[in-house]
Design a protein around this nucleic acid. Structure first.
Length: 263
DNA sequence: AACACGACCTGGTAGC
DNA sequence: TGCTACCAGGTCGTGT
């Protein structure tokens, strides 16, 4: 479920309904330490921020709840915390009866709370926000210059560009016609420029479609509307050249690419 | 330093 | 239908 665009959509949905509410109790079943409850109890939500794929729920008194949805987590507000589903891992009970719910079938998601300074220190090694003003081509090129890493693995590294994941890396590489196995430092300047633009373009559109998918009443984004040219399409014809999309393993994960277009 | 791999977890589905 | 095997949008720790 969540790469940066989906996490951004979660935050945009959460922010207006959670901000200003007081957390009266934290019901922790899994995915968070029991000590989190006394840390957040009685505190008012003052904001919701995102850093890469991390969600930061700001509480009064310089306390922050830090959540990472990992592979299958989801975070949302329900109108009545008593009706949280049986798959809920954490329920933050709000004043007025609502609740912030962390759901995760696989229970790989994580939530913790602590002093804001400590939480921020724990994610200080995150790289540049790809849709922020700091993600300039010059900065991207400087990172790429010294790297012999295959393009796919380079882009997956959260300490360089924060927020890309397996799907949007594949789509951006396809859009830029870059071979995922190609060492970064061996990309031509032209390809590198194209890749930088493709990352921004892919994520911009993915955020838009994720926001739409997540704001649909009832739907929590199951319907991923972003059109995928390569991800998950092994064996299917490339939308551009009709050659069969290939799947290979890189860093223990699947990489999908078009052997005709991406060279 | 750079890479491979298992662990963490559960559920959906393709194939027999 | 039932079973098995494999796959999954992520990250971290360990070992080579």
């Amino acid at each position: 479920m969540p790469e940066m665009p989906e996490v951004e959509a979660v935050c945009r949905k959460l922010r207006p309904v959670a901000t200003g509410r007081v957390i009266e109790e934290a019901r922790i079943l899994r995915c968070a330490p029991a000590e989190m409850a006394p840390t957040v109890r009685g505190r008012r939500v003052v904001g919701v921020d995102r850093a890469g794929k991390h969600i930061l729920i700001r509480l009064a008194g310089d306390v922050t709840i830090h959540t990472h949805l990992r592979m299958s987590g989801n975070l949302f507000v329900i109108p009545d915390h008593r009706f949280a589903s049986s798959r809920a891992r954490v329920v933050l009970e709000l004043d007025g009866g609502g609740g912030i719910v962390l759901e995760d079938a696989r229970a790989l998601a994580r939530m913790e709370a602590g002093a804001t300074a400590e939480i921020e220190a724990s994610i200080a090694d995150l790289g540049v926000e790809p849709l922020g003003p700091e993600f300039t081509f010059e900065r991207f090129a400087a990172m790429a210059r010294g790297s012999r890493q295959p393009a796919k693995l380079f882009l997956m590294d959260q300490t360089r560009v924060a927020g890309l994941g397996n799907i949007y890396v594949a789509e951006a590489l396809f859009q830029a016609r870059v071979d995922p196995r190609k060492p970064m430092q061996r990309l031509t300047l032209r390809k590198l420029r194209g890749l930088h633009a493709a990352i921004v373009n892919t994520l911009t559109h993915a955020v838009q479609s994720a926001v739409v998918a997540y704001s649909r009443p009832g739907g929590f984004g199951e319907a991923e509307e972003f059109p995928r040219a390569v991800y998950g399409r092994e064996g299917a014809p490339c939308v551009a050249c009709r050659r069969a999309i290939r799947r290979i393993a890189q860093g223990g994960r699947s990489t999908y690419y078009c052997p005709g277009c991406q060279r």
